[in-house]
Structure formats: structure tokens, C-alpha cells
């Protein structure tokens, strides 16, 4: 229940930001607006800190400050809790970011997908979500000719659609098949998630939520309607739940041999 509580708060906060944005008509409200949003962030952090375990408390940075290089956002997926039939994370992402398909499965975008696995040697089966792994050394960023693929200071890998020319070299380079190309015109985009024909896109780790002090939609939904298999937090903070879990249990990343150091960890893979 605490998860639901926190999600409501996150939504409220998002509204607060929206309102602040849409009223940008009177010049003198800037300071008070900033103060209000920062205050809301603190409130949420405190509330969350009282009892939420699965959804780690995220520090809401002040809106006028850039993302901090001291932070490294990451995810931990517990495959023992992730169920094969469940697609709560995928549904949540699709709804949050608005990447519904156009009836052509191979050309539809897919920011996050559920992969069912069977270990060939043992026959063990399990399931897990795969999305952009937000690597420390992302090949997509290396190969991008214009620099549209970039890594934010806090480790989130994004596509700057303003300078993406749609060459798809990043899709060739990504070992995780995490990126999608938009094959047709799109309308009714979410205001926080502009998307358009001819550009490449991928999981943003819900950067708009993180900047407002929230958690990614997939993690939130996994904790609510799902099985609570996903944990979000700051990998650089030794006191964060995610760091403690990674320090305690055996975890791995997908294709660790590539030495890309993804920010998404899997337990029981």
C-alpha cells in the first residue's frame, strides 16, 4: 500500500510541475515556483523514507540545477520475483511514454520487453524485463555521428531528437536491442515525451519522473500491480537500498563480458 501512496504523491508532484510550467506567463512567479517545487520534493523524500522498501527514495534535485555526476541511477531486477506472464512494467511504460504500436510487430517501438529464458544446460526457466541498460560506456553514444545519443551526468542514456538524423547506427551498435526507430508519423505525444517519425528512441529511465523526485513508471507499476521485482535507486549511494542489495546478493548484468557496465542489475540471472 505504501507504494500506491507514494505513486499518488508522485503524480501530485508532476501536476505541480505542470502547473508551474503552464503558467509561465507572469515573470515574478519564478522564485516562488521554484521554492514550491523544491519544497514538494523534500516532502516526498521524507514521506517515502518512512516505510517504502521496494521503491527506493529518490532525491529530488532542485529544478534549476543540472543532474549531478555524483549520482548513478540504476535498476535491480529480482528474476525470482518476476513472473513469466506478467507485463505490468511493459504496460506501464507504454502508457507513461505513449509508444503504442501500429499493428506491425517488427516495426513497432519497444522500449521495454519481457524476455522468457530457459537455461539450455539445466532447463531452468525464468523471465525478466529488458530495457535500455544505461551503460557507463554506451556503444550507442560512441557510434552516434552527431552526438544525439548522449549520457547525462547521472548516467541516464538518452537520445536528443533535436539532432538525431535517423541513421540507426546506434541500433546496430546496441548489444541489448534496446532502441527503436519511429517508422511513421505520430500524433498526440505526451507533453513530457516528445517523439517523432525518423528518430531513434529508447527507455529514458523516466527521466522526467526522476528529475521530479519520482521513480520510473515500470518500477512503480511492478511494485503495485506487478510482483515487486524491480528496485530503482542511486548506485553511487552506499546507503541506498539498491546498493545494499547489490553488495549483499549475487547479481549480474547482461553481457558483462562486453565491459559496458550497464546500470541495470539482475539477481538470479
Amino acid at each position: 500500500m505504501s507504494e500506491n501512496h507514494s505513486s499518488d504523491l508522485a503524480t501530485d508532484r508532476a501536476h505541480a510541475v505542470d502547473r508551474a510550467g503552464s503558467c509561465g506567463c507572469s515573470g515574478d512567479s519564478g522564485v516562488s515556483r521554484r521554492g514550491f517545487v523544491a519544497g514538494a520534493g523534500t516532502l516526498v523524500t521524507m514521506t517515502l523514507a518512512t516505510g517504502v522498501v521496494l521503491i527506493a527514495p529518490a532525491q529530488s534535485k532542485p529544478v534549476d540545477e543540472p543532474a549531478s555526476p555524483d549520482v548513478r541511477w540504476g535498476l535491480l531486477v529480482d528474476t525470482s520475483k518476476c513472473e513469466a506472464g506478467c507485463s505490468a512494467c511493459v504496460d506501464a511504460c507504454r502508457e507513461e511514454q505513449g509508444w503504442e504500436g501500429h499493428g506491425r510487430p517488427e516495426q513497432n517501438p519497444q522500449w521495454i520487453r519481457k524476455v522468457d529464458l530457459k537455461e539450455t544446460a539445466t532447463g531452468r526457466t525464468f523471465s525478466l524485463p529488458v530495457m535500455c541498460q544505461h551503460c557507463t560506456h554506451p556503444p550507442c553514444v560512441d557510434v552516434c555521428p552527431t552526438g544525439a545519443s548522449f549520457k547525462r551526468a547521472d548516467g541516464i542514456v538518452l537520445v536528443d531528437r533535436h539532432i538525431c538524423i535517423g541513421c540507426r547506427y546506434c541500433m546496430m551498435a546496441c548489444p541489448y536491442k534496446a532502441r527503436s526507430f519511429v517508422h511513421e508519423d505520430i500524433e498526440n505525444q505526451k507533453p513530457h515525451m516528445p517523439r517523432g517519425k525518423g528518430c531513434v528512441e529508447a527507455c529514458t529511465l523516466c527521466v522526467h519522473r526522476i528529475d521530479a523526485g519520482g521513480v520510473p513508471a515500470c518500477v512503480e507499476k511492478c511494485g503495485g500491480a506487478g510482483t515487486g521485482a524491480m528496485l530503482f535507486g542511486d548506485l553511487n549511494d552506499p546507503n541506498a537500498e539498491i546498493s545494499k542489495r547489490i553488495a549483499t546478493y549475487a547479481t549480474t548484468q547482461i553481457r558483462p563480458d562486453l565491459k559496458l557496465n550497464p546500470g541495470v542489475f539482475y539477481q538470479g540471472l
Partner: peptide, 8 residues
């Protein structure tokens, strides 16, 4: 986009 400064 690049820095995450969310003033509006």
C-alpha cells in the same frame, strides 16, 4: 535535455 535543468 542535456543537463536535466527543469526550469520552465
Amino acid at each position: 535535455m542535456r543537463e536535466g535543468i527543469r526550469t520552465t
